[in-house]
Computed example of a mutant assay.
Amino acid sequence: MTDSTRLPPAAGPSPDDDAAVAARALPLLDLTSLNDGDDADTVVRLCDRAQSAAGPVAAVCIWPLWVAIAKSNLRGTGIRVATVVNFPGGSFPRERVLYEIGEALADGADEIDVVMNYADVINGSGARAAADLAACREACGDATMKVILETGSLAKPVLIAKAAGIAVEAGADFLKTSTGKVPVGATPGAARILLEACRDAGRPVGFKASGGVRDIAGAREYLALADAICGPDWAGPATFRFGASGLLDALLATLGKGPAGPRSGSGY
């Protein structure tokens, strides 16, 4: 994990204070748009939203094609640019994935969200998934590597734990629940397993909840899990993220900085 990700932890709010939860969650947000119809204008608007009236989010997460545009629009804001590779199925040849990483980094990506070959975890030994991720780790260099496990497809706790172990061993900086492209996204049960893997990793490993976190109640639940498992001072931008689109509007509405209710997004 690069030095620029080592930010101070957010202070823990009262679990009953919606405004405090919103204020805590907003700087942990990876504001995401991964729709098939996204274009340059979509990305510019997303970058504008990322610089919200209540403060900046942690990062924007977009298709690799638009990394350079996002980087240009966010220069000087401190907001990081994340992109996805091997997305969404986790089954592209290793050479293609490494090429995607190289191109994204050349365009200025700060963070790479890579989908692990979760089918190999389900149907095989996980050895191919492990080798692919180790190669991705080397290709990422100092960039933050978030590994998307697709916990909704893994489904069984034993498989989620197995995938988490493979990702940690391969050098993941974050364990991320979901692509947002399958029916089941983040769940508290899966989050607990991933957070326990982060806690027990023996080095800094963060957690990202993505897929279906859209309101204050969801944000509160995942932050409370992180506090209980990893400690009340653990969850900050360097260790905890929400991958979401509509969540930002719910946070801003709670803080009195925007209209009530979330927008529709890209499964996030």
Rank of each mutant, 00 (worst) to 15 (best):
A164V: 05
A131K: 13
S125Q: 07
A104Q: 02
I148S: 07
A119N: 13
R128L: 14
V168M: 06
A109M: 10
M116I: 14
S153T: 14
L133H: 02
A170K: 06
L105N: 05
A131I: 00
D132H: 11
S125V: 12
E169W: 01
A134R: 15
K156P: 00
V84H: 06
A139S: 14
D120R: 09
V85K: 02
F87L: 04
G165R: 14
A82I: 01
L105E: 05
A129R: 09
A131V: 03
V84A: 05
D113R: 04
G89K: 05
A139E: 08
A119G: 15
V168D: 01
E103Y: 07
Y118E: 09
C140K: 07
Y99P: 00
N86H: 07
E95S: 13
D132A: 10
V97T: 15
G141Y: 10
L149V: 12
A170W: 08
V85Y: 00
L133T: 09
E111K: 00
R128H: 12
A135G: 09
G76K: 09
R94Y: 03
L154T: 09
D107M: 13
E100T: 01
R128S: 12
R80A: 05
A163Q: 07
V168E: 08
T151V: 15
I160W: 09
I148R: 07
G124D: 13
G102P: 01
A163I: 11
S153F: 04
G78I: 07
A155C: 04
G76T: 07
L154A: 06
G78A: 06
G141T: 06
A163D: 13
V97Q: 05
G171Y: 08
G78S: 10
D120T: 03
V158H: 14
V84P: 03
A109G: 04
I166W: 02
A119F: 13
S91Y: 05
A161M: 03
I79R: 01
A130R: 15
C136D: 06
P93K: 01
S91M: 14
P157F: 08
N86I: 08
D120S: 07
D113G: 00
G126H: 13
N86A: 05
A106R: 15
K162M: 08
M116P: 07
G124N: 14
A119E: 13
V84N: 09
E138N: 04
N117Y: 05
I122A: 08
A127K: 09
V121Y: 12
R137I: 06
G152P: 11
G76S: 04
N117E: 10
R80W: 05
V81K: 03
G76Q: 04
T144Y: 06
V97E: 03
E100H: 12
N86Y: 06
G108A: 08
I148P: 09
N117W: 01
A167Q: 10
G152D: 11
Y99R: 02
R94K: 12
A82T: 03
K146W: 11
S125G: 14
A127C: 01
A109Y: 02
V121M: 13
A161P: 03
P88M: 00
K156M: 14
A135D: 15
D132C: 11
I160D: 02
G78W: 03
G108C: 09
E103L: 13
L154K: 10
P93N: 00
V158F: 10
I79H: 04
C136L: 10
L159N: 15
R96H: 02
D113F: 02
K156Q: 15
